[in-house]
Design a protein around this nucleic acid. Structure first.
Length: 419
RNA sequence: GCGAGUGUAGCUCAGUGGUUAGAGCACCGGUUUGUGGUACCGGGGGUCGUGGGUUCAAGUCCCAUCACUCGCCCCA
């Protein structure tokens, strides 16, 4: 059984293929983002608590119960970031980087939420995300959605996910709708679940996507946000749909898609899957005009998304490029150290990953070569030293030959090319 | 924060209240003192999550507790 110190609940160690898959997803996201002109950037893993309290909404669950908040040494209250968008907006404002707009930014890194862990949900999890700041047009939303779709395609997940699309409209539309919705729900308060009765008071839109069967009946007949949009909001949404159609990006209008963070408006979207248990969203975002103003800067448009790397990772499965196979350089004779180091460096100069084996019998070293998946082994023993050569063993075919040290990189490269 | 399920070797799991708790895989060694993978032979490894209780006797039954998993809430 496991002994000693344990990892903190909801955190995770990553080894081997799991870590390679993780890195592959980040690399794919960075590459896709670069193709759209999004420049990599990074923000700190923690911020003054105010950054999140001001932007996510006082009543959102993230703010009320999920933040890792603590006092820094100097008495300031700081919080491990629960999401990436607010810090990016803060960084643009505090760094004065608002001269060249729109700003296109890509980030990746850990996020922290103090939730009960379950499938696809950790306390420390990781996201990649893009933000487009200073582009008020619906074309901005189309651009970020297209980038998201392209990333999922690159990861081979197009058939695993569905794009759900909705709009919250502008502030005026949302307020008008909220009034109508609360009036309707109030009439049915008695038939709602306890959770939803609480939602009705705190965040009525949330009743719409409740999973409780008793709520579904009420929610499915509730007034629709789409019927309460003013002409600006309706036109904005129509343009988003029109351009997505033009790009042949398929989507479903999901009138129940309500996002949890206060800063969203107009377009919201989620790429969802049914393969991750209770967690459906793998890449999600929307428009957040005005977020920079809440950080004390000018009011700017904003739109973007974040994707959960762990969730993507669970979906990609074995769909992973082959691991690079190293060459093992075995120092069989004790006094072959210098030759072994030189051979390994020569291989690396040629772009071939090389690993040194110093300990134990040749048998043991070859077994190690097998375990690390080495393509070949370079043997440096008494015989080789005296003859001024190295033995190169092809570990797939078992063929072995002695060659001059100067020929080593070329010989190995040829072997790799041959399979 | 709430609910359910599961905790036995590094991993996956057997184990009817009754000897010294087992298997497969993995690991180590040998067959082979300069040759991996396959095969054969051998070996090491367990406070049965933890603490209490019931019993002549507990891995097994009861209670508590901790951890993990899944779900609710919420969300990437």
């Amino acid at each position: 059984m496991a002994r000693g110190l344990q990892p903190v609940r909801g955190t995770h160690d990553l080894f081997g293929d799991d870590k390679r898959r993780f890195d592959h997803i980040v690399a794919a996201a960075r590459s896709v983002a670069a193709g759209y002109g999004y420049a990599p950037m990074a923000t700190p893993a923690f911020e003054f608590t105010e950054v999140f309290r001001r932007t996510l909404g006082e009543t959102s669950d993230i703010v009320t119960k999920e933040m890792y908040t603590f006092a820094s040494g100097s008495g300031e209250e700081v919080t491990l970031r629960p999401e990436g968008t607010a810090p990016v907006a803060r960084a643009l404002v505090s760094g004065g980087r608002l001269q060249v707009l729109p700003a296109r930014l890509f980030y990746d890194g850990p996020m922290f939420r103090r939730e009960r862990p379950q499938k696809g949900r950790m306390r420390q999890f990781h996201q990649v995300g893009i933000e487009l700041i200073g582009e008020p047009s619906p074309v901005g939303d189309v651009e970020v959605i297209a980038a998201g779709a392209r990333l999922l395609e690159r990861l081979g997940l197009t058939d695993s996910v569905t794009l759900h699309l909705h709009t919250l409209g502008n502030g005026a539309s949302r307020d008008r709708y909220r009034t109508a919705l609360v009036a309707y729900l109030d009439q049915h308060r008695g038939s709602l679940s306890a959770d939803s009765q609480r939602r009705l008071d705190r965040n009525p839109l949330r009743v719409l996507d409740s999973k409780a069967p008793e709520d579904r009946e009420v929610a499915d007949k509730a007034p629709r946000l789409l019927d309460h949009l003013d002409s600006d909001s309706a036109g904005f949404f129509a343009e988003v749909r029109c351009q997505l159609d033009a790009l042949k990006i398929g989507y479903e209008i999901d009138p129940l898609l309500v996002r949890g963070l206060d800063y969203y408006m107009h377009t919201t979207f989620e790429f969802v899957t049914d393969r991750l248990g209770a967690q459906g969203a793998v890449l999600a975002g929307g428009r957040y005009d005005g977020l920079t103003e809440r950080m004390g800067g000018p009011s700017l448009a904003g739109t973007g998304w974040a994707a959960g790397i762990e969730r993507l990772s669970m979906l990609t499965g074995d769909n992973l490029p082959a691991a690079p196979r190293p060459v093992l350089v075995a120092r069989v004779a004790e006094d072959a150290t210098t030759q072994a180091l030189r051979c390994a460096e020569a291989l690396r100069d040629a772009g071939v990953p090389a690993e040194l084996a110093l300990q134990g019998s040749l048998k043991r070293q070859l077994r190690h070569a097998d375990r690390i998946g080495a393509r070949a082994a370079v043997l440096l023993g008494r015989r080789e030293l005296e003859a001024g050569v190295v033995s190169v063993r092809d570990l797939d075919s078992g063929e072995q030959s002695e060659i001059a040290i100067a020929q080593l990189p070329g010989h190995v490269l040829e072997m790799i090319d041959g399979g």
